[in-house]
């Protein structure tokens, strides 16, 4: 009898799962990270020597101690790990953001999750301008090369791995919708606006402006667009599942008699 109970439970769960799929509508990303182009300029295996801040007490020429590793890249999130880094360590991730919609999309914020205080993170375009929320619009189907700059501060611990994730939040650019959702070119903030500069602790160190991001590569990517709104429920699924469950219930009732 217990076995029968388990079977019935499984049937019920399965039925509700089937019904659930009718309404399953996962949140769609408007902007996604390029999962095919995302590379650290100092991953653990490249044997590349790290650049050091002038005056850094650890500096004796150059060393290869720390590393910036990409743990995982999904459409919405990049998860990174900085391992065994020392104060002043700075490394970049070169990647690309893609507007996966058919409409202009405005970046509203760049959110860094689980970031320890001893790490600074900045998302910049290839000209070195910081991407500030509400100031960058990507036209439909377009993409943009970006550089994620990370920097380790004095409060970092030795021989420690720091993990954090970066998420881009965006919304449809309504300012472009009055004409019916026409496209627009990417707009960036003007260069004469005040720059937001990552300032290292204590040591006057590398000026982030000196970072020369790599030249963008001309890669065209297949872009998967989100669905138009789902406007049809599967009535037969409900009726079928309901009838199956009801029938089972009646069958067991009769069996009891």
């Amino acid at each position: 009898m217990r076995k029968l109970g388990y079977v019935l439970c499984l049937i019920m769960i399965f039925s509700y799962m089937m019904v659930g799929t009718v309404y399953a509508d996962t949140a769609k990303n408007l902007i996604e990270w390029d999962q095919d182009y995302c590379e650290s300029n100092d991953d653990p295996d490249d044997n590349k020597l790290d650049s050091m801040d002038p005056g850094n007490p650890n500096s004796d020429g150059v060393m290869d101690i720390g590393s910036l590793d990409i743990v995982e890249v999904t459409a919405g999130t990049i998860t990174c790990a900085i391992d065994n880094a020392y104060p002043g360590y700075q490394a970049n991730i070169n990647t690309r953001i893609i507007n996966v919609t058919k409409n202009p999309v405005k970046i509203t914020s760049v959110r860094v999750e689980d970031k320890p205080d001893c790490i600074l993170v900045s998302l910049r375009d290839t000209d070195g301008d910081e991407l500030v929320g509400d100031e960058l619009t990507l036209s439909k189907d377009s993409s943009m090369d970006v550089v994620l700059i990370t920097r380790v501060l004095q409060s970092a611990q030795q021989a420690t791995t720091y993990n954090f994730s970066i998420v881009i939040e965006a919304r449809q650019d309504e300012s472009h919708s009055s004409g019916g959702g026409g496209g627009s070119s990417s707009s960036r903030r003007s260069s004469d606006e005040e720059e937001l500069v990552i300032e290292p602790e204590d040591n006057p160190t590398t000026d982030p402006e000196e970072i020369t991001p790599p030249e963008p590569e001309g890669i065209s990517l297949p872009i998967k667009l989100p669905e138009l709104p789902i406007t049809g429920g599967n009535i037969m699924m409900f009726i079928g599942s309901g009838a199956a469950l009801g029938g089972l219930g009646i069958m067991f009732k009769r069996r009891r008699k």
Binding site: M1, G246, L248, G249, M251
Partner: peptide
């Protein structure tokens, strides 16, 4: 079994 079958019938009718 009776309780189970009642529950299943209610769930089925709700779905329909």
């Amino acid at each position: 079994l009776n309780r189970w079958s009642t529950l299943i019938i209610i769930a089925g009718v709700s779905l329909v």
